[in-house]
């Protein structure tokens, strides 16, 4: 037992070092902007940069739009598959995993061919069109995470019986969705939403190739031209992601119906 405990501690210690040493290195480097002393100058420079606020707000807004579109598409689809076509579940799961297999760059070049200036629907010709295209692209990127979260939520709630119980009490499909399904998969929805937000905030390929002012391209641009600010920005982005993860954990821990 004692040997086992020691072995566990060694494994955890090595893993901790692997994860945190680079982070500590980045943190240390981000504080060395002022020669000879540690300071938060790099962080101040990042926060003072107007492009930081613009790109962060842009990506945050896009994350909200992505989550809304994703949920509107995926919740009814996952619900319908479970209730009316359970045999299709494996196939739908496979389809939702495709974005993990097909590289983002392939998808975005496909979009540019389909919706470019020469196409029958030239979405990339306008900013709003490109924004819409970006949001739809992000929905595709987030599909594996959103679908899995929603499906896990539906698994835990005995969808069929609760739906039938609500029907027998006179509820219409819309009422069942709003009063029975959504409240009972709330935690799963929040998990999916936060994961989606984390993905959208750091995404580079789509935003860059569609030439949109996303947070991902801004991080890349800063990294290519500055020394200390990228380190500070990495920590900020890391803190944001961790914050979202903590929120997922907090909502997951809350009792249903409480």
């Amino acid at each position: 037992m004692k040997g086992g405990t020691l072995w566990r501690r060694i494994v955890l210690g090595v893993m901790g070092l692997y994860l945190f040493v680079p982070l500590l290195g980045v943190a240390e480097f981000s504080l060395r902007m002022r020669r000879g002393v540690y300071s938060f100058d790099a962080f101040a420079a990042v926060f003072a940069d107007g492009r930081f606020r613009e790109t962060f707000l842009y990506s945050s807004a896009l994350a909200v739009v992505t989550v809304v579109i994703g949920m509107v598409l995926i919740v009814p689809a996952a619900y319908a598959v479970r209730l009316y076509a359970p045999r299709l579940r494996a196939m739908v799961e496979f389809v939702t995993l495709l974005p993990l297999v097909v590289p983002a760059i392939v998808i975005v070049f496909g979009y540019m061919r389909l919706f470019g200036s020469q196409s029958w629907l030239p979405l990339t010709d306008t900013e709003i069109g490109s924004d819409a295209l970006l949001a739809f692209g992000y929905v595709i990127l987030a599909l594996p995470y959103l679908y899995r979260s929603v499906d896990a939520g539906l698994t835990s709630m005995d969808v069929r019986n609760l739906t039938e119980a609500a029907e027998s009490l006179g509820a219409r499909p819309w009422t069942i969705m709003l009063r029975v399904v959504l409240p009972n998969i709330r935690t799963a929805l929040l998990s999916g939403a936060f994961l989606t937000a984390a993905i959208v905030l750091g995404e580079f390929t789509f935003a860059s190739l569609l030439n949109r002012p996303g947070f991902g391209p801004y991080m890349q641009l800063l990294g290519a031209n500055r020394a200390y600010e990228p380190a500070a920005l990495s920590l900020v982005a890391f803190a944001l992601t961790w914050g979202l993860m903590v929120l997922i954990g907090a909502f997951s821990g809350r009792r249903t119906g409480a």
Binding site: N161, E164, A165, S168, P183, R186, T256
Partner: peptide
């Protein structure tokens, strides 16, 4: 206008 009682209770957990 029927009332149904299920084996698994099917109460709304929320």
């Amino acid at each position: 206008r029927i009332g149904m009682v299920f084996q698994s209770y099917a109460l709304f957990p929320n």
